[in-house]
Design a binder for these strands. Structure first.
Length: 480
RNA sequence: GGUCCCGUGGUAGAGUGGCUAUACAGAGCUCUGCAAAAGCUUGUACAUCGGUUCGAAUCCGGUCGGGACCUCCA
């Protein structure tokens, strides 16, 4: 099936075809590892996970997916500095070596972050690489040197800056985000850092060393420039090294369109002479929580771990997020997740009811679902189609052959949605005392002793069990 | 100051000119001793004002409200 994706470069939905053979090369701007994943991060990484799953199942493509890890920036430096209150015991003792501290700090949160993504159903095992910025310093330095050599950057006070004015003379700037040069930053607080650049729109490629901060040696034209990379340069260098330019898809949150992605693009053009960095730029919208922007000051800032602590299943959170389109603002609510949990459980019960009689057999494709997903990843419509399909195939009206096909069709959808289980129904372990009460109750019920039967049912409920009566017997289920 | 997006039923969320979205919740029914589960049926909507049109949630304009980016927040 032909896939279509919205491309921020063209501002339109375009048909998607890989640039090279049958392989989709995708780069996702990954996390800065200074804490556990919050639900905004989850939405941002759900997007490439969804893309790669759709590419494989519906597009029939192979995928090489790279998500970087930013392990050097202001926040990680601050967090790993002596006296930081976000330093954890598990990171070990801090040392006089700033780079060693940074490494211990970021490795700790990197592992936590990847775990969080995995529990949310994001297939970290499908990522071909998770390059760390600090491991590509030489590639970045080489790119920076090339940009300087090509006349699009200058050295100033130990730092290197990208010269936007020079670049604009030869290339378009503002391809991913409309920039109004006349009104640039009027009325907006100007970033007042201590670095000296020629123009406020210039951005830093290499930051000169600051006392007590991690740094790497760097020399351009015999000038010593100890320091560390700017933010944008890592993604240019690592995507070039690991995917080659141009690659197929670049993902990130809408906030990254400018300046981060615009500058990445400019760096690639200025340094690599690449006609394009990526064919498609795909950006996810932000989410709000209970109708307000998620922020720590409003008290509605949730990490995945917070939600798990509230008793939520990460897969319910995943399904809740898939319930809105990635390019629209999602209003994340606790009630919403609970509603989705019910819907997910019902489909799971449906699957297990079929699974009692059949094993999945491939062959049936739910066209409506796949057409929706092929149409710019329209998950809300896909889910509506999925529920309609389930409704149109009630368990009681399917023979075993059809049940196997229906299961196969759902399993195929689940390679993308990723929230259901197709193993056999798990056997419920019933404690002996519960079983004994249930037996007594069944005996009372058979004897039409309704009062005793109801009394025992209440006792079972108190023990956390619900009992469902059938014609010839009963079934016990734990109250979840 | 600039650029842009959004406002749909109790809740979340699709829908770009006429036709039930869907899910959860609610109501009724079937089944059941009563339940539970499941199935069936069903109500309530398109911020506001004006315009275009035979017809507008959908197109155009105003107003009100919310949000995003221009600040190394996903």
């Amino acid at each position: 099936m032909q896939l279509h994706l919205y491309n921020t470069l063209s501002k339109t939905i375009q048909p998607f075809t890989p640039l090279r053979d049958n392989l989709v090369r995708m780069y996702s701007c990954g996390p800065t590892v200074y804490g556990p994943a919050h639900i905004g991060n989850l939405r941002a990484f759900l997007l490439p996970d969804l893309i790669q799953r759709v590419m494989k199942t519906i597009g029939g493509y192979d995928v090489r997916w790279v998500m970087n890890v930013t392990d050097i920036d202001d926040k990680t430096i601050a967090g790993s500095a002596p006296g930081s209150d976000s330093w954890q015991d598990a990171m070990g003792e801090q040392t006089p070596d700033a780079r060693a501290n940074l490494r211990a700090y970021t490795r700790y949160f990197e592992a936590m972050f990847l775990q969080d993504l995995a529990s949310f159903g994001i297939r970290t095992e499908d990522m071909a690489a998770n390059p760390r910025a600090t491991e590509y310093i030489e590639s970045m330095q080489s790119l920076i040197a090339d940009i300087v050599r090509n006349g699009y950057a200058y050295v100033r006070d130990g730092s290197v800056y990208f010269d936007v004015a020079a670049y604009r003379k030869d290339h378009p700037y503002g391809r991913l985000f409309h920039i109004d040069v006349e009104n640039f930053r009027e009325g907006v607080r100007i970033d007042a850092d201590e670095y000296e650049r020629e123009s406020v729109s210039d951005f830093v490629l290499w930051k000169g060393r600051k006392v007590d901060e991690p740094y790497w040696e760097f020399t351009i034209d015999g000038i010593e420039l100890p320091g560390r990379p700017g933010w944008h340069i890592e993604c240019s260098a690592m995507s070039y090294e690991l995917l080659g330019l141009p690659f197929d898809i670049h993902t990130g949150g809408v906030d990254l369109r400018f300046p981060h992605h615009e500058d990445e693009l400019a760096q690639c053009t200025a340094g690599y002479h690449a006609p394009e960095q990526a064919a498609f730029w795909v950006h996810n919208e932000f989410l709000e929580v209970e109708g307000r922007k998620m922020s720590k000051s409003l008290g509605n800032f949730y990490t995945l771990r917070d939600l798990i602590a509230k008793g939520m299943d990460p897969l319910d959170v995943r399904l809740a997020m898939l319930g809105s389109h990635y390019r629209s603002v999602l209003n994340f609510t606790i009630d919403g997740v609970q509603a989705v949990a019910t819907a997910r459980r019902r489909v799971q019960d449906y699957i297990w009811d079929l699974r009692d009689r059949a094993v999945p057999v491939p062959g049936l494709v739910i066209d409506g679902v796949e057409a929706a997903l092929a149409d710019d990843l329209h998950t809300p419509r896909a889910l509506a189609e999925l529920y309609a399909f389930v409704g149109a195939n009630p368990v009681s009206q399917l023979d075993d052959d059809r049940a196997a096909l229906v299961l196969g069709a759902l399993q195929r959808v689940n390679t993308i949605i990723g929230v259901w289980n197709f193993d056999e129904r798990p056997t419920v372990i019933i404690p002996d005392d519960v079983r004994a009460i249930a037996e007594d109750r069944w005996a009372a019920r058979v004897a039409k002793n309704w009062a005793e039967s109801d009394r025992l049912r209440d006792i079972l409920a108190g023990l956390g069990w619900t009992v469902k009566d059938g014609k010839t017997g009963y079934e016990l289920q734990p109250l979840s």
